[in-house]
């Protein structure tokens, strides 16, 4: 693989520093739990949408999906576009019934429909998937990209560094920091995808 130039290194460092600084900046105004978890319930739809986009179609999807498409062709995209059909089906046919019975989360449904055990199972499964699928894959991706810049550092050390940075602004900033950094990342992702 071609060695990345100094320019790429500078851009990456600049983006990272900017992101962390921005995350810390928006995280200064925190008073209570509502602020922390729900961003004071003051988020508007463009920020919500962009943050959802960035956390869903993240660097994981851009790297992994592009890699898979390079290997197998465009058919791997089926997995993503079929989600649209499924989500639309869910919103139109199932969601009104669930909202009507005042169910807001999946664990809530499982507990009321079956028992506490089902809810607990879901919680454990979610934690497991978050750790082994989402977090691990995101760190893996991030460290792959970083390795292009600094090939001599081992993969796990890069992963640990990325995890530390993400922790820093999520723990101090709560949802508002995640939303704002998410929105900025979405714009960066879309912009760089267009280039």
């Amino acid at each position: 693989m071609r060695a990345p130039g100094t320019l790429a290194l500078l851009i990456t460092l600049g983006c990272t520093a900017g992101m962390v600084g921005f995350g810390l900046l928006v995280s200064r105004r925190q008073r209570n739990l509502d602020d922390y978890f729900l961003a004071s319930r003051a988020s508007r739809w463009p920020a919500i949408g962009l943050a959802l986009y960035a956390s869903n179609i993240s660097s994981t999807a851009i790297i992994a999906l592009a890699g898979a498409a390079y290997a197998f062709g465009i058919s791997v995209y089926d997995y993503e576009w079929s989600a649209t059909v499924l989500l639309v089906f869910f919103c139109v046919f199932l969601l009104p019934a669930l909202l009507g019975s005042r169910i807001y989360t999946m664990p809530e449904f499982l507990e009321r429909r079956y028992d506490r055990g089902a809810r607990l199972y879901f919680a454990v499964l979610t934690l497991f998937l978050l750790v082994f699928v989402d977090a691990a894959a995101a760190l893996y991706c991030g460290s792959l990209v970083c390795r292009l810049l600094v090939p001599d550092v081992p993969l796990w050390a890069l992963g640990a560094l990325l995890a530390g940075v993400a922790c820093l602004y999520t723990l101090t900033g709560g949802l508002r920091a995640v939303m704002w950094t998410g929105s900025v990342q979405a714009v960066l992702l879309l912009g760089s995808a267009l280039i």
């Binding site: 992994a64 791997v76 894959a137 893996y140 993969l155 796990w156 922790c167």
Partner: peptide, 19 residues
């Protein structure tokens, strides 16, 4: 939790394709 993810991440290489 995140420590486990950090430790697990390099293992993904064994599965071949990330996707």
């Amino acid at each position: 939790m995140l420590a486990v993810a950090v430790l697990w991440a390099p293992q993904i290489e064994r599965f071949g394709d990330l996707w």
